[in-house]
């Protein structure tokens, strides 16, 4: 991790380019592998793309949800606090698989027939809601860690509460919250595999299908595991570099 500390901008750049090249070109090396991997190379590559897309979309929405609910938990309005508490309590207290199934099977009953969600959207919504609840506590802890004097200085200079939050509190809270948020993101990469239960063809589902056709679980699941490891490594490099960027000006 030392390299990412010394060159955070390069590390972020390299991780992002690496991730893109990996997703784009994954099928080429895989297609050279012997059966059962080679013939299914395109499926693996497509599965990895779906996994990354699920992670990125629900991860981004999850951070926004986490910031909103984290702020809401610190609100001076009891109703807002209550709603946010309820959200976190509900999500943390029920299994992710149940949440995914609920969004997929139960939510369509509330929606008009003209407005039905794709399987992928259902998975993305459930995952975003789930990670958002876990992010809430990280963000809340981060906000509480910002010294009161920073807020007083910003307010005394005439910054509005919103400007004060965006310019001072949020960036400083992220320094504290980011390690925990990165942890949640790494979990999300893997938790996205639960979307297989609602027939989203992501990486784990591809592996399951390929081994079901070939009866060779060992090479198939090893390949899937290696792809997951490469993806989580890229994501953690990205977040570690981001952490170093945000860490500027802090006592060490």
């Amino acid at each position: 991790m030392n390299w990412t500390k010394q060159h955070p901008a390069w590390a972020m750049f390299a991780a992002m380019i690496g991730l893109l090249v990996f997703l784009w070109g994954l099928a080429i090396p895989l297609s050279l592998a012997p059966a059962p991997i080679g013939p299914a190379a395109q499926q693996f590559a497509e599965g990895a793309r779906v996994t990354v897309l699920l992670t990125l979309i629900s991860g981004t929405v999850g951070v926004v949800l986490g910031v909103l609910a984290g702020l809401g938990k610190l609100s001076s309005f009891r109703l807002i606090r209550w709603v946010c508490d309820f959200y976190v309590w509900l999500i943390r207290g029920t299994p992710l698989l149940l949440q995914i199934l609920f969004v997929w099977l139960a939510v369509p009953q509330f929606l008009p027939d003209s407005m039905q969600l794709s399987d992928f959207s259902c998975a993305a919504i459930a995952l975003a809601l789930n990670i958002g609840a876990y992010n809430t506590e990280c963000v809340r802890a981060g906000i509480l860690a910002v010294p009161q004097g920073q807020v007083e200085a910003a307010r005394a200079l005439g910054l509005s509460p919103f400007q004060c939050f965006m310019d001072i509190v949020l960036p400083q809270s992220m320094r504290v919250a980011l390690p925990a948020l990165a942890n949640n993101l790494a979990s999300l990469v893997k938790d996205s595999s639960l979307a297989y239960a609602i027939s989203v063809v992501e990486l784990t589902m591809v592996g399951y299908r390929v081994q079901a056709e070939s009866y060779q679980p060992i090479p198939v699941f090893v390949t899937v595991a290696v792809i997951y490891l490469i993806l989580t490594t890229a994501f953690t490099t990205l977040t570690a570099a981001l952490e170093t960027q945000l860490d500027v000006g802090r006592k060490r």
Partner: peptide, 20 residues
């Protein structure tokens, strides 16, 4: 807001924005 624009303050513990 109008008053805070006209009144500056210097604190005992400086309170410089540590991330900037």
């Amino acid at each position: 807001d109008a008053i805070r624009r006209e009144v500056g303050m210097v604190f005992q513990s400086f309170n410089l924005f540590s991330h900037l």
